[in-house]
């Protein structure tokens, strides 16, 4: 039984904002299915009552005062932009 279908791969690609061709979808379906099938070995383990680890060290929340300070100028922030206009990032139309 396959763990992930081609339709699911296309859906996941859409969620991740990736364009995949039919050919690529076939390839990724096979490869992701192999990887997910392999990963199913984790089900051998009883993890009832085990706390999930999100982070290996005991961390405390780090906060700072909400004060404005110099980081980047507008010119710097826009310097590497593919397209800009009037001091702003320019993007294609959002509404059809």
């Amino acid at each position: 039984m396959s763990r992930i279908s081609k339709e699911q791969v296309k859906h996941v690609a859409h969620l991740a904002r990736l364009h995949v061709s039919e050919e690529e979808a076939d390839m990724f379906t096979k490869q992701l299915d192999d990887i997910i099938t392999f990963a199913e070995q984790l089900n051998e383990l009883d993890t009832e009552g085990v706390e999930p680890t999100t982070h290996v060290l005991d961390l405390k929340n780090v906060t700072r005062k909400d004060e404005p300070k110099h980081w980047l100028t507008k010119e710097e922030a826009l310097k590497n932009a593919p397209e800009k206009q009037d001091g702003q990032f320019r993007v294609p139309s959002i509404l059809e």
Binding site: L15, A16, T47, P52
Partner: peptide
């Protein structure tokens, strides 16, 4: 990116991502 998006997606999060976090503890 697709594997990660799948593991985090609705309906699979507990089975894959959270399960892996628990095994990480072990």
């Amino acid at each position: 990116i697709m594997l990660g998006t799948f593991a985090l997606s609705s309906g699979y999060y507990d089975a894959y991502y959270k399960k892996a976090q628990k095994v990480r503890t072990l």
